[in-house]
Design a binder for these strands. Structure first.
Lengths: 193, 193
DNA sequence: GCCGGTCTCGCGGATTATCGCGAATGACTG
DNA sequence: CAGTCATTCGCGATAATCCGCGAGACCGGC
């Protein structure tokens, strides 16, 4: 990706190994564009995009994905991302998206546009995500096999707070076992199986 | 990726949008190398690698991943893949891996090697199916959100016995959290997500 | 400015899960 | 027939979770 973007005259000023790193880099460097993978450890691309908008409002985010499932795309749009590119399409599209974002525009792969249109047409099929961003973040870490003790320092909050989120997640979902929560997370694309 | 590989003199004869397509291309074209994403729709990289070995035994597989978790890596090794490259590392490593595979060798990112070494230290081998039938049965029930107390009467054995199986499953898999066990079960088709 | 939602933190207690250890039985293997 | 392995059960201890409850701080919308 660095090769492709640099060949087009863009300057790549940072690379991140996971969602948290991506947010941290954006906070430090305030880049014009942040290209995110939808599936990243610790923090997924969508929630990372939301976080980036908070810490660096001028940074435009572009999300790369292999999945063209609707709920991913809609969640991304809600997070205010400026581009959504399918990995299965040519690199030209990524460049196009970055160029558009740099100009202040937006770009979405055809599959994404289609999914958004379909969702718009029959919005009855728009299941509102019952979880808040923070709850979803905790959910992801639980599903990534992190213990409550490990999650607390990762998010910079107390163990008790994490327990509160655990409880609320289970209450909202009507699931009362870790196993069920993990499967929910997988079914909803919060983490990879 | 096409840019990088062609710049190095490799010929890219096909591109696939998902795991199933990747397998189909391999069956048709019998390429020397197949570069797979661990996270692909329809069929993940590991199971795709296993399938490719079945339909095109001479094709060497290389898996790209963002996750350095042990169970992914071990599953990949069991699937007979010749390379395992972290996406977070430079493109040089991918080229290196492809070159090694083409020569008949193998290449793994340092994180991968480390995880494999740790696994070897814990148990002397990487068996095809490490779990006994009874263990797999317990695994399934765990992944179906059953508690130990519920599992015992379901199998007609004591709670303590179920606990023994739980421990052994975790020991064998090198996973020590319910969440990880559930994901293992899902990845291995023991339960539906 | 008030209200609802979110995020945060805490307490006490009940329930589960995990670890380390031992040990008996039966079945299959070399 | 000795060895290995799967299956079964147990004790004791520690760690992690789940539950019910309360509560202050902040923010955005009406």
């Amino acid at each position: 990706m660095r090769v492709i973007l640099e060949r087009e005259g863009f300057k790549v000023i940072a690379e991140a190994a996971n969602g948290r790193e991506a947010v941290e880099w954006c906070e430090k460097l305030h880049p014009d564009i942040a290209v995110l993978d939808l599936s990243m450890p610790l923090l997924n691309g969508i929630d990372a995009a939301r976080e980036i908008r908070r810490v660096s409002a001028d940074t435009k985010t572009i999300i790369l994905t292999m999945h063209n499932e609707r709920h991913f795309i809609l969640a991304g749009l809600r997070a205010g991302t400026r581009g959504f590119v399918m990995k299965t399409r040519s690199a030209v599209e990524l460049v196009h998206a970055v160029r558009e974002a740099a100009r202040g525009g937006a770009f979405f792969s055809p599959e994404v546009t289609q999914a958004a249109v379909e969702a718009y047409q029959n919005k009855s099929e728009l299941p509102e995500d019952p979880l808040t961003p923070r709850e979803r973040q905790v959910l992801q870490l639980i599903a990534e096999s992190k213990t409550t003790k490990e999650i607390a320092p990762l998010l910079g909050i107390s163990v008790k707070t994490v327990e509160t989120y655990r409880s609320r997640i289970m209450e909202k979902l009507g699931i009362h076992q870790t196993a069920g929560v993990v499967r929910y997370a997988i079914r909803h694309g919060v983490v990879e199986p």
